[in-house]
Every structure is written in structure tokens, then in C-alpha cells.
Design a protein around this nucleic acid. Sequence first.
DNA 1: TTTTTCACG
DNA 2: ACGTACGTGAAAAAG
Length: 887
Amino acid sequence: MRRRKVKKIVLIDGHSILNRAFYAIPDLTNSEGIHTNAILGFLNIMFKILDEEKPEYLTVAFDVHQPTFRHEMFEQYKGTRKSMPEELREQVPLMKEVLKAMGITIMEKPGYEADDVLGTIAKTSEQKGYQVSLVSGDRDLLQLASENIKIRIPKTKKGGTEIENYNTQDVIETYGVTPKQFIDLKGLMGDTSDNIPGVPGIGEKTAGKIISTYDSIENAYEHLEEIGPAKAKEALRNNHDLAILSKTLATIKTDCDIEFHLEDALVGNLYNEGAYSFFKRLEFKSLLNRFQLEVTHYEGIEEYFKVLNDLEQAEMVFNKLLKSASGHMTAGLQFITAGDKILGLSLTYSDKDIYFIKVEGFITEEYLKDKVCNLLDTPISLATINLKPQLDYIRAAEKSNVFDEGIAAYLLNPLNSTYYYDDIARDYLKMTIPSMNDLFGKNDIANLSSENDKEFRNYCCYQSYVCYKAYEPLVDALKNTDMYQLFVTIEMPLVYTLYDMELRGIHINREELKKYGEKLAVGIADLETKIYHLVGEEFNINSPKQLGVILFEKLRLPFGKKTKTGYSTSADILDKLVQEHPVVSMILEYRQLTKLKSTYADGLATYIGNDERIHGKFHQTIAATGRISSTEPNLQNIPIRMELGREIRKVFIPEDGYIFLDADYSQIELRVLAHMSEDERLIAAYREAQDIHRITASQVFHTPLDEVTPLQRSNAKAVNFGIVYGISSFGLGQGLNISRKEAEDYINRYFETYPRVKQYLDDLVLNGKKNGYVTTLFGRRRPIPELSSSNFMQRSFGERVAMNSPIQGTAADIIKIAMIRVNERLKELKLRSRLILQIHDELLIEAHKEEIEEVSSILKEEMQKAANMSIPLEVEVKTGTNWYEAK
DNA sequence: TTTTTCACG
DNA sequence: ACGTACGTGAAAAAG
């Protein structure tokens, strides 16, 4: 005989699960700074239950944010509810949107609590013959348990979530009362977390005994005289009204006047496009596996994707575009490459002209390059993502009709970590498309390109399609945020400057670098034996964990404190221990040597090319403040502070017939601060004195300029640094190794001396809080989501960022302008001298010996006039036959 | 992959 | 009570 399967409905107590998830999962934010831990936890619990039960129906109930009847009654007793932390509060609306995106119904009814709504739906569903699962973090709901209503309480245990299940029998076994009696039990004993007063003097044990004997509060009062102990009897006698009220409070309504249509709660396709893009934005990578890529495709646009491998067809496509070329046209284009091979060109110039033109047969790499160069000579706006590496193919001078969408997207939100085509599609087209990772994972693109692979075709076509579609939204967004000017006059030209610099690279003396490494190796081996001997055993000195054990357990040195996964062995802790044991200073020296060897001597050597030069990469879309960053290798952190490390700069040498010209801004950040704060005294200080730290010390400590002690000067210097970093007494104390109190005193004196600086910094924080972002002198924005955090630490961080970013960012803007101008002028004048490195406030030029004078003055001039401020920008230019000498 | 440490501005 | 100076990238160890 075939029995019809009973239909299941899952009901979720939204706030309760969200709340539980929030506290169970450590703080988590996506790259936009949105907190996501509670939402992730909620979804994990929900998916676990859905996977298990495969219900036909699903609904989530939320409380409405207004006081309900039961709350009001309670608040007369206990004051206000404790408020929700901001990090959780901001996740509530987002959670609802995520659920809506998955097509899950949300019940929220003003005047009712979620409990009551859930109770009502549960009971009516049960009556209709459904199996009900009620998911909550709250034991209140146990009163609703029955044969067909299962209360499910998720618990986060080690190694995942486990769920406790309660039907009638489970409640009886665990609590010794029936679900119905559970109400009376709670009425008597009360529940502080759920705002139920209960009867004072009666706790869990007594309440349990009374209810299991008399079944209900009402019946207990009928038999009041029989009740013992006497104390409980008295408590009941004196609190009759309270007991009845508590029971009312504890009772979950099952007869709410709500409209609930079961068919609305039908579980549809949870894994749809909208949900996918949400998950992606929130960066729930583990959950994305649940989506099948098919559902993410977009409105049948792929029907128009065409792969061309025939020259005649390609000609037609290009000709059609070239013939109709006009200024209000846009084309998206993107070279698709594997290594240094061009696989083809992705090109889109209308909603129906979407092509991947493959390098094959008569379509050669050269052909495609030529065609793209033809496009450069038209007024068509050409949009691409990540232009710099493609300049290898688009051998063209700076073109005003080329638009790098990666850089546009970076300006609009510099906090993102990537700006790929799928990121831009998500953020500016509300469109979800598979990322390169989704499509190929770890596979090499080159391998997949061989056949008429649909995914490969889509990947290629989407690239230019996104460029084409996102062009206008991005231009509009830049204009709306007042960053279009910044984009056009600084960021786009800089792409070409950085490209030039990468191409040129920097010459290295390979032999000297090797010798330097060998010298270090000798020192390292020597120290190693000495350390092992002193300590009495061999261990891995590079392992902080092993080192910690040796220093703080074996040698019993006073551990400075700090620990998360063990003892801290960082240099500032070890510095304080040099007096304690002779091995400490050896370890510090060992660290220094191994760092120099591994990162610099050996590290740099691997990047030297056949031309004996290192061609590092400069990145324009990494730093949140607008700075440039450097990788492969990082040429912006070559040692200089310590003499031994500094030596390595001797291997950076100019080519024969050339010399290094190194130009440095003098304290550009403090000058920016002086200009932006308009502090008269700071401005005056800069107009007259060269030594700003000395003059600061003189003014802050009320000491004549020539009587400032070295200590006063270095303290003033630290305060100046502190100001730029977003001052905090704690941080300054740390930096200066003095107490927080003393540091605070310094800061106060500084602000007394330069009151407008204080005013300015305060205003930055205030504006940051108001707008959610801060800006540089040139309009660059930095969003600061941390400013609205309720977490002290995060908020303080936000405040420091609000003070630092405009200063660091403005300095970055200024040197970018200088770089562009210097590079352009050298090229215009057809000089052989060339800009090769930027180190934040420093430019390095490989100058031809015949051009030294001319180039020095160009350098100095362009750097000084990059920004017109109320104080001059001072630039120091030095020459040298290597980088060591030039600094 | 994450953590720790340390190099630079 | 909280527990950090701002911005980066690389190497090595550990999970």
C-alpha cells in the first residue's frame, strides 16, 4: 500500500537564529566592510536544516521593531531591553534582503512577536496535517512541541552545528513537564532573558515540583494549602497576580490574526541569480558551491556571443565599427592572453555585436594589434579593464579615448581587493556572471582555449561585454562623486607612466648582489652556532613558536606579555630583553641577517632579467589611500635605516653613461597637514625653518630654538608622526616607550601650540562620520565603514583612518602628478634620462650624464609645482653612481 | 591559507 | 572595560 508522504514546513525564528549566529561566529566582514558573520551563520543553519528535511514550505518570522504588547507590559518591570550591537543591527535588513532574494517569505506583523506568529502558523499547519519544524535558538518555543511540531535548537559545538530536537516526549524527558506545562513552569520560575518576572523566591526546582504535581498555576492555587515547603506557599500567596501575569507573558499565542498563505511559503529555486550575486557580494565563498553556474547566466545575452576565427569575418566586424565611428560610441575591448601569448581579442560595440576574435590562421597577433591601434585613432570611447599590461599590444602613446574600468572602480571603492570583470558586472551592472575562477578553477586557460569550449567563449565575450555596458555607469558614478577630474587628469595618465617605468626596470649588479648574500651567509652561520651554544640546544630560530619556548620557558626570561597563539618575540619585545641574556641581541642580529638574505639578497636575485635589470610591477588599485604599491619584487621597501641593510643599495646601479638622480620631498605629509589645516603657526614654522621637528619641539616645550635638546626634538618628531597617523595617546606612548599619560600630555601641548590642527582633525572625523568617507585635496575618496561601528576598537581605528587618509592620500596625489609631468617632459624633450622608481615621496631617475643639470631642474621644478599650497614643497635632489650614494 | 615578523614611506 | 599608532609586500612557519 502506498502512503502519501506527509508535507513538511520549516519555520525559522529569524532574530533568534541571527542573534545566536552573531555570537557563535567570530566577527567577519567583506571587503566593503560590511559585517557578515550573523548572516553567514544563519544561512549555514538554514541550509543544514533544509538539506536534512527537504521541506516543501519555508518561512522566516521576524519581530517588528516597535514595542509590542508583551514588551510594554514587561518594561514596567525591568526598564528597557538591552540594545543590539551595531554590528548585528546592520545585518538584520541585509539578512531580510538575502532571504527575499532566495524567494523565502518573511513574516513580520506589527503588534505581534515572532514567537506568536510562529506559534500560530505552527498550530494551524499542524491542524492541516503538516509536519512542522520550528527552528529557534530560544527554549521558549518548547511549549509548542507536539507529535507533529518539532522544536529544533541549533547549538554550535566544536566541529560544526548540532541541532537538539524536541517533540512532546523529548520535552518531558528533558524537563520533566509536558510542553503545555512548560508555560506554567516558566510563569512560576520566570525568565530574565525573556523578560518574564516569575514568582520571587521560586526557582527551577520548586517550580518543577509544583507543576508536575498540580499541572498548572491555576490548579496550584486551588490547592495552595497543600503546597510545601511553607516558603513556596507564602511566595505564591503573596504574588498571585504576578504569577498569572507571568503565565500570560510566557504564553505564546497560537491564534494571531495573521494572513498566512501556505502557497507563498513554497520553497522555490533558492539558488537563483539574485541570491548568487548577494552571496558573492557578501563573499560567502563556501556557499557559492550550492549554485549551479547555469542559473547565473544573464538574460540570454550569450546567444549573441560569437567567436570569429576567419579573417574575412573579422574584417567585417572591424570595418563596421570603424566606418560608423563617432564620438558618442563606446566599444569594450580586452586582449585575452595566456602568458605572453595573445589568444584573441574580446570586442563589444553593441548589445548584439559581441565577439571573441581568435588568433588563428590569418588572424595574427599583429593583425589584432593593428586593428586596435586603428580604433585608437577614432573618437570612439574605448573601455577596458586593467590597461597597463595591455599596453604591450596597444603600442600607443597616451590616448584620451581609453578608459580603464578597473581604475574607475578602484576610485569609486578603493576597499575592494579585486576589480575584475565579474566584480564590475556585479557592482555596476547588477549582473552576475561566472568569474574566471568559477569557470576554470586551477586549470590553465591556455589548455581550455583549444576547442570550441562554450565556457571559454563566454569568459572571453563577457570581458568586453562588461566593459561596454559598464562604461556609462562608471563615468556617471565618477562624475557624481566628483572624481572624474581626478580620474582623467591623474589616474589614467599615470597608467602610462607606470607602464614606462616597469618597462625600463632598474639595473642590478648581479655579482655584487651575490657577494652580498655570501657575506650575510657567513654571518648567519656564525651567529647560529653561537646561539645554539649559548642556549644549549639546536632549534629553528626563525620559528617564533620554538623561539618563544626557548626564551620564555627554558631561559625563563620575563615575557613582555602579548600573546594570541603564544609568546610574542617581535623586535620591540626582544629589545627590552637584551640586558637579560646575551643571546637576545644575537637573535635580533640573526633575524636582521636572515631577513636581508632571504628577502633581499636571494629574493631580488630571482627577479634579475637577461638585461640585468629588475622589472618590478607597480600597482595602482591596491592601497586604500591612493598610494602606489610595488611587487615582484617590492622595490619600495629596500633597506635604508640600518647600515648593513643599506649596503644593498650599492647593487642598484645605473647603466653605463648614466647616473642616478634621486629626489625626495621633505616631510610632504606634514606640509600637506599645514596646508589643509590652515594652522597659521604651523605654516609660519614651515615658511622659516628647515628643521620642523626642532621648531615643533621649541614651540611645544616653550624652549628657545637653539636650546632644544636632542630628546625634545625626537619626542616632537614622534608627535609629528603620531599626528599624521591619526593621533592616539596609547599609540604615541607605544612608539615613544612612555606612559599613556605622558603621551597625552605631549599631544595636549601639541594641540595647544597648533589649535587649527586639532580643529582640522576633529572636523575630518566628524565629516567622516557624517558622509561615511573622507577625501583628499584632489577629491579622492576613502570610505570608512568602521566609523559607524559600536566596537570601540574598530571605531577608534576608523577615526585614525579618517585623520590619516586625507593626508597620506593628498601626498600620494601630489607625487602622482609630479611623476606624470616628469615622465612626460623627459619624453617630450627626447632626453635619454628616465624615471624608473617611485617610493611614496621619492623619485629615482636614471639620468644620462650629459643631462644631469637639465633633468635635476626639471625634477625639482615639477615636483615643487605639482600642488599649489600655502607653503612651499621642498625637494632635495641628490646624485650617485649607485642608489646608496644617491640617498 | 593564515600568522608572525620585519623591510620601507 | 576595551587594547592600536597610518599605508604597504615578502618570507617562513604553522595550521
